[in-house]
Simulated scan of single mutants.
Amino acid sequence: MAASAALSTGQILNAPTLRETEKARLKRLLRKLARAGRGSNRRGKVKTAIARLKVRETDRRKDWVEKTSTDLARRFDVIAVEDLNICGMTRSAKGTLAEPGRNVRQKAGLNRAILASGWGLLVTRLEHKAAGRVVKVDPRYTSQTCNACGNIAAGSRESQSRFGCVACGWQDNADVNAARNIRDTAAGHAVAARGGLPLGGPVNREPQRDLLLVR
Rank of each mutant, 00 (worst) to 15 (best):
V191L: 02
T185G: 02
C87T: 07
L7S: 13
R74C: 05
V214E: 09
R35Q: 09
Q144S: 05
A49M: 11
L26Y: 06
D184E: 13
R35T: 13
T48M: 08
V134S: 05
A108T: 11
R157F: 06
K54P: 00
I114H: 12
A80D: 04
T185Y: 02
A192G: 12
W119C: 05
K23A: 12
A186C: 09
D172L: 12
R75L: 02
R28C: 04
E57P: 00
T185I: 15
T145L: 07
N181K: 00
V166P: 10
L97N: 03
V166G: 05
G101F: 03
W170F: 15
R56H: 09
I12H: 03
Y141W: 13
R25C: 05
L212K: 05
Q11L: 13
R112G: 08
K54Y: 07
G101P: 12
A186T: 15
A36H: 05
R91N: 08
R194N: 06
G10E: 12
G195R: 07
R205P: 07
Q160G: 14
R28N: 14
H189D: 09
S8N: 11
G39I: 09
R25W: 05
P100A: 07
K32W: 10
D77P: 01
L121I: 07
L53S: 06
S156D: 02
R35M: 08
A6M: 11
T68I: 04
A167P: 00
R25T: 14
Q11P: 00
D77Q: 03
G37F: 06
V203E: 14
V46G: 09
P198Y: 09
P198Q: 15
I79T: 07
N177M: 07
G10T: 04
K107G: 11
V135W: 11
K47S: 10
R74F: 01
R162I: 08
Y141R: 00
A187H: 13
D138A: 14
L72H: 06
P198E: 14
L121C: 01
E57I: 11
L211I: 07
R56W: 02
V203M: 08
C165P: 06
W119M: 14
V78H: 08
R157C: 04
L84I: 13
Q144Y: 03
A24F: 13
I79K: 04
R25A: 11
R61M: 10
C168G: 08
V46I: 15
A131W: 01
N41M: 10
P202A: 00
N181R: 01
G201F: 00
G39W: 10
L97Y: 11
L7D: 03
W170H: 15
T145P: 09
C168W: 09
H189K: 04
A193K: 01
A5E: 04
R140E: 09
L7M: 12
C149G: 07
F163Q: 06
D59R: 14
L7T: 05
L115H: 09
S92K: 12
T17Y: 06
I86P: 03
Y141F: 15
